[in-house]
Structures are given as C-alpha cells and as structure tokens.
Amino acid sequence: MSAGQAAENPFIHCRGVSKYFGNFKALDEISIDIEAGEIVCIVGPSGGGKSTLLRVLNALEPIDSGEIQIDQIKLPGSRKDVEDIRREVGMVFQQFNLFEHMSIRENVTFAPRMSRKMSTENANELAENLLRRVGIAEQIAKYPNHLSGGQQQRVAIARALAMQPKAMLFDEPTSALDPEMVAEVLDVIRELAESGMTMLIVTHEMGFAKEVSDRMLYMSGGRIIVDSETQEFFQSVDNSDLNQFLSKIL
C-alpha cells in the first residue's frame, strides 16, 4: 500500500482539519488517510503541529473545521462517539501522565474496569500479562514515583494497551527520558510494531523511525509538507525544508 493513495475504507481519515489556539493556527487544513496496520512516524520542528494532530485524533482537542473519521466513527461527534473513538485508539504521552495516586496495577486496570466494565479479576490478569510484556511485571504493586522514567513510560504503554485499542498514538514517547532509558521504551514500541498494530508515532529518533515505520510525515507550520514511504523519505525526497531539518538532526 503506498502513501497518498486513497483506499476504500482507511482506518483513520482526515479531511481539511484545522485547529486554532487563539489566533495561532496549529493545524492548517490537514487531510490524510492511514490504513489499518500502517506504522506512520511524524517528524518536524517543535510547534509544527505534530502533537496537536495526535491530540485531535484522540478528541483531546476539539477541531475548528474539517472532519475526522476513525474506524467509521465521525468527529466532531456526540459524547458517545468521542468515548468510542478513545476506546479504539490508545495514547501515550511525552510526560507519561500516570495517575500518581494509584499503584501500577491500578493504573493499568483502571480503564478496562471503568470504561470496558471488565471484572477486577480479569483486569488484574490482563494487567499482569501486559506488564510482563513490557518487562516490568515485578513492579506491579509500586507507585509511579518509585519508578524510573523509562519504567513509567512502559507502564503508560501497558495502560493504553489494556483498553485493547486498534491503534496507538505515541506523542514523543522518549523525549522526556534520560538517554540511557530511551532504548528500553523503543524496544517495547518496536515489539508492538511487529505485532501489526496501527501506530502513529511523533518522534525525534530518526534511526528508530527509519527502522520501524512504513511511512513518514514531515510537519511544519501546521501543515503536512512531506508524506512519503519511509525509504523514499530518507533517500529521494527533495524538499529544502525537510533537507535542512534532516541535516540538523541526523
């Protein structure tokens, strides 16, 4: 499947999406389709609209114009639509945002119990499995502030996965981490990529993006400037903006 080519029912579908913060245009008429199973990395200068795009896709920010459709559910939509979309799409934040007053177990089981009405027993079992998968099963009874940043971010990934989402959004998942902890988080995301999850990843880790993604987006000034397959993106795309950005970061 190649970029830009409109398939019949893309998993994520945006048409003319704009978002303002006061007078600042954070997203400028964004249109994009993402297929199920696709792994898309978004790069670009800060303030370029990358995070806003992810937040809009999870209905954390209302959009000012345009339309979003995720797995046939439309935004803007009713409160139920918003909750349905959030159940389908997991999100991982730069600052982890773990619930600080809850243990690791509660952090992971909370959403399935409250939002999917899962029994405590099943939720606990699910949490243990997921925490084993991200490699921190032994920390289950601790609280977030007892964990390192890398561990906290892995818990946050497990927490999002506990909702059994069809897609995952990663908003700079390693930017708040000390360098020695970046790899452990990227390993978890890589493993997830291999399992066939649909993913949108905002990142500054170019090597990782190149290795894991099918498709790359370059965003700047609230627009998608470049949208191409990964190999092409790093080898043959000729865009002065992008070249300058890549030469600075690589």
Partner: peptide, 15 residues
C-alpha cells in the same frame, strides 16, 4: 491537578 492526568483519563475513554 496536572492537566496531563485528565488528558490521560480522557484518552482512556474513562466516563
């Protein structure tokens, strides 16, 4: 209460 806590809860579709 930090904004991120509420964001995370929203993202998890918690009522």
């Amino acid at each position: 209460v930090p904004r991120g806590q509420v964001d995370a809860a929203h993202a998890l579709a918690i009522p």
